[in-house]
C-alpha cells in the first residue's frame, strides 16, 4: 500500500465479516448436497426398507431379551476386564521383574489380537484342548472371559497410566505416615488413579457394548441372543431392514449417553 498512514483507502473485510461469508458458503454447499440427495433418493423404497412400523412392532417384546443380553454381556465382560485389568496394571508397575514381564506380555497379546479371535479361542480352542472343561455360567462365563480378556488389556493400560499420573507427593505423604507400599497403593494411589481414568474406562464400556455383537460366534439360543444377532435373524425372516434400524437405535440408546457421560467426566477432570 502506498499510504502507510491513516485508514486504507479500500475498506478491507473485517475478520468477523470474512468468517460470516465463509460460513454462509459452507451452508450453501451443504444445502445443495442435501437437495441433490433428496431428489435422487427413492424415498418410497427407503421408507419401505427401514421404516416398516408393523415389522418393528412385531419385534416386541422379544427384542427386550436381546437388549438385556447385550447389557448383561457388556457388564460381565467389563467386570472381568476391570478385576483382571487392575491386577495386570498393578503387576506392570511392580518392582518385581517377572510380574512386569508377564503383565507386559499379557497386554501386548490381548491388545494385539482381534476380539473375535479371542472369542473363538475361548469358545472353541480351549474346550478342544481341555476336553470336559465347563465355563461357570455357560455362555455367560464364556463371554465374560472371551470379551473380558481383550478388554482387560486395554483397561490395564488405562489404569497403569492413571497410577503413574498420581502425583509423587501423594505417595510420599502416605509413606511418611507409616503406610506400607501396599497400603499406600490401596488407600491412596489406586482410588486416585481410578478417578483419573474414569473417562477412558467409560469409553471402554462403549467399545464393549458394541463388541458384545461378536458373541454370536459362540452359538447362541433365543434366550441368550444379543441385539445384533437378534436383529439379523429378524432381517432374514422378514427380508426387511427395519430390524437393523431398531437394533441400531437400541445400541445408540446405550452408547450415546455413555459417551456423553465420558465427555462430561473428562471436562470435570480438566476443571480440577
Amino acid at each position: 500500500m502506498d499510504a502507510p498512514t491513516a485508514a486504507p483507502a479500500r475498506p478491507r473485510m473485517t475478520p468477523r465479516r470474512r468468517r460470516g461469508l465463509s460460513r454462509a458458503l459452507q451452508y450453501a454447499v451443504l444445502a445443495a448436497v442435501a437437495t441433490a440427495l433428496a431428489v435422487v433418493a427413492d424415498w418410497g423404497r427407503i421408507a419401505d426398507s427401514f421404516f416398516r412400523f408393523d415389522i418393528a412392532a412385531a419385534m416386541f417384546p422379544d427384542v427386550w431379551t436381546a437388549f438385556a443380553n447385550t447389557i448383561v454381556y457388556t457388564l460381565l465382560a467389563f467386570a472381568f476386564g476391570m478385576v483382571v485389568g487392575v491386577l495386570i496394571a498393578l503387576m506392570r508397575v511392580s518392582e518385581f521383574g517377572p510380574y512386569r514381564w508377564f503383565a507386559t506380555a499379557y497386554v501386548e497379546i490381548f491388545r494385539g489380537l482381534p476380539a473375535l479371535l479371542v472369542l473363538f479361542l475361548v469358545g472353541f480352542g480351549v474346550p478342544q484342548a481341555f476336553p470336559g472343561i465347563q465355563y461357570p455360567g455357560g455362555v455367560y462365563g464364556q463371554v465374560a472371559l472371551g470379551l473380558g480378556l481383550t478388554s482387560s488389556a486395554y483397561i490395564a493400560e488405562s489404569v497403569r497410566a492413571g497410577i503413574q499420573a498420581v502425583p509423587k507427593g501423594q505417595i510420599e505423604a502416605a509413606r511418611s505416615l507409616g503406610m506400607s507400599p501396599t497400603r499406600t497403593m490401596i488407600t491412596v494411589v489406586l482410588p486416585q488413579a481410578l478417578r483419573i481414568v474414569i473417562p477412558p474406562l467409560t469409553n471402554e464400556l462403549v467399545m464393549l457394548t458394541k463388541d458384545s455383537s461378536l458373541v454370536f460366534v459362540l452359538g447362541v439360543t433365543t434366550a441368550t441372543m444379543e441385539l445384533s444377532k437378534f436383529a439379523r435373524n429378524e432381517l432374514t425372516s422378514t427380508a426387511n431392514a427395519t430390524p437393523l434400524l431398531l437394533g441400531g437405535l437400541l445400541y445408540l440408546l446405550l452408547t450415546v449417553p455413555l459417551s456423553a457421560l465420558a465427555r462430561r467426566l473428562e471436562h470435570r477432570g480438566e476443571a480440577r
Partner: peptide, 27 residues
Amino acid sequence: ARRDIGMVFQQFNLFSHLSILDNVAIA
C-alpha cells in the same frame, strides 16, 4: 519408624480424594 516421625511438605500433599476429616483419620 515413620509412624513416630511426622512430616509436613511445602506443597501440603493432602490426599486429594479424601475429605478433610478422612485426611486426618485415615492413617
